[in-house]
Design a protein around this nucleic acid. Structure first.
Lengths: 182, 182
DNA sequence: GTCTATATCAAGATAGAC
DNA sequence: GTCTATCTTGATATAGAC
C-alpha cells in the first residue's frame, strides 16, 4: 500500500534544490538521502514523506537541468551574435558550469515517464529550430557538441589542446553542410 | 607495508578476462570482486594476492579495451573502402559491441599512470594519422564520433532516428573541412 | 511532518592460518 | 595461493510512535 505523494509541493522543491547544491558541490557520490536530510536539518527517513525515492529526486534534478538549459538557449537565440556560435557557447557553458548536473542528465538512459512532459522537448526544440539543417544534421551536430563537452569534462583532451579551436573547426564543418542542406 | 604484485602474470590476466566477461554480460554494477572470484571458483580475498585492488582491475580492462580498439583501427586502415568511413564504422562498431567496456574507457577521467604506457596512444595515433586534417579538426571529429556512440548507447536519439544518416551527415561535414585543411 | 529504531543489503579490503 | 573470519563502511528504505 503506497502513499500518494503530490508531485509539486514547496517542501519537495526545497529538497530538490538542496540535492542540487550537494550534487554540484561534491558530486554524485555525495548525493545521499542522508546528506540531503542533514543539510535540511532533518533525518533521512523524513524525506520519504515528501518524495518517493532517490530515483524521483534525481529525475527532479534532471527536470531542473533541462529547464535551465532551455533558458540558456532562449537567451542565446536573443543574442546578436552568430546563432550557431551563440547556441554552441550556451551549451558548452552550461556543461562546464554544471558538470555533475550535465553528467546526470546525459550519462544514462532517460526514463521520460519520470520527468515533466515537455521539459526535455523544450530544450531540444529550441536548439534544433534555430538551424536550417536536416534532422540528421541536427543530430550529428548535437553529438559533436555533447562529445566536446563530455570529453572536456572528463579531461580526455591533452592538457594543452586548444578546445576553442576544435569547437571552431567543428562548427565550421557543420555550417558548410547546413548551407547545402534543405 | 604493501606487498609488491607483479604487473603481468597468467593468473592476473585470467582475473581480468573474467572481469571482462562479467562486465560485458551484466554491466558495471555486477562487476564486484566477489563475482569475479565466484566465477573463478575461489574466494574474493584470494584475488588480492594477484591484483592490488578493484581500481587496478578496472584499469586492466581499460588497457585491453584500448588494445582492441587499436586492432580495430588497424583492420579498418587496411580495408579498401573510404578511410574516413571505415574508421568511423570501426569506432561505432566497437562501442556498440562492447557498450559497458566503451563506457568504462570513456566516461571518467583516465589515470594514465595506471595503464600501460602507449595503450591509449596507439589507438589515438592510428585514428588521427589517417586524416589530413589539423589536430583541432581531429579533436572535433573524435568528439562527433564519441557523441554519436555514447548518445546511441544511452538511447538518447528518438527511437526512429536514422543514425546511419546522421553519421553520414557528420562525416560529410568533416570531410569537406579536411579537404580545405592543411 | 518529524522522530527513533531497524531491516536489509552489499561493497572493498585485511589478518592470519594452512 | 587459497582459505575463514572479520573489519569497516555505507547506502536505501520501512514501521510505527509522537
Amino acid at each position: 500500500m503506497s502513499e500518494t505523494i503530490p508531485v509539486s509541493t514547496p517542501r519537495r522543491q526545497q529538497i530538490i534544490a538542496t540535492a542540487r547544491e550537494i550534487l554540484e558541490e561534491d558530486g554524485p557520490s555525495a548525493l545521499t538521502m542522508r546528506a540531503v536530510a542533514d543539510r535540511l536539518g532533518i533525518r533521512a527517513p523524513s524525506l520519504y514523506k515528501h518524495i518517493p525515492d532517490k530515483d524521483a529526486l534525481e529525475h527532479g534534478l534532471i527536470e531542473v537541468a533541462f529547464d535551465e538549459l532551455g533558458d540558456a538557449f532562449e537567451a542565446a537565440r536573443a543574442s546578436q551574435t552568430d546563432l550557431l556560435v551563440a547556441m554552441a557557447q550556451a551549451y558548452r557553458r552550461f556543461g562546464l558550469e554544471h558538470p555533475h548536473l550535465y553528467r546526470l542528465m546525459t550519462e544514462h538512459k532517460l526514463d521520460r515517464s519520470r520527468i515533466r512532459p515537455g521539459a526535455e522537448e523544450r530544450a531540444a526544440r529550441l536548439s534544433i529550430a534555430s538551424f536550417g539543417g536536416s534532422q540528421d544534421t541536427a543530430r550529428a551536430l548535437w553529438a559533436f557538441a555533447h562529445g566536446m563537452v563530455i570529453l572536456e569534462l572528463n579531461e580526455r583532451f591533452p592538457a594543452d589542446a586548444e578546445l576553442d579551436l576544435a569547437w571552431q573547426r567543428g562548427l565550421a564543418a557543420f555550417r558548410t553542410l547546413m548551407e547545402k542542406d534543405t
